[in-house]
């Protein structure tokens, strides 16, 4: 079956619809600063396959694993790679939500992260 002329437009439109996998793939592409070809390469598929996958509903809830497996099987992509992309976006969205709702919590998190950087000289050592 040849590629329908509406596929690319529909996939692009799905990027604006948060419930679609296309939205998640686009978020991941922007977070990781990847081109569409680079994302296709990471998932070991073609751009056309990316477009078809974009039309799917984003796997969610209790049967997340089953949904990811079904999408991966139909489109012949690695289910682990696909699950990793979806989870990565979910984690980053979670951080963004926390930062928005509780700015003091992320400030503490940043401070804690700064304290644990190895090899960084302590304040007392740098002050003369």
């Amino acid at each position: 079956m040849s590629t329908p002329d509406w596929l690319e437009h529909a996939a692009k439109r799905c990027q604006r619809e948060p419930l679609t996998l296309g939205h998640t793939l686009e978020q991941y592409r922007q977070l990781e600063r990847l081109s569409e070809d680079a994302l296709a390469h990471e998932l070991n598929c073609t751009r056309e396959t990316l477009h078809w996958m974009s039309l799917c509903r984003k796997p969610d809830g209790e049967d997340f694993r089953a949904q990811v497996t079904a999408i991966a099987q139909r489109h012949e992509v690695n289910p682990l790679a696909l699950a990793k992309v979806i989870r990565h976006v979910e984690i980053m969205e979670g951080f963004a939500r926390t930062a928005r709702d509780q700015p003091e919590a992320t400030a503490r998190l940043r401070l804690a992260a700064r304290d644990r950087v190895d090899g960084e000289p302590k304040d007392e050592e740098t002050t003369s």
């Binding site: 679609t20 996998l21 078809w52 996958m53 039309l55 799917c56 509903r57 984003k58 796997p59 969610d60 809830g61 949904q67 079904a70 999408i71 139909r74």
Partner: peptide, 8 residues
Amino acid sequence: RGDSLSWE
């Protein structure tokens, strides 16, 4: 039912 592939 929220089947992911049904959308496609």
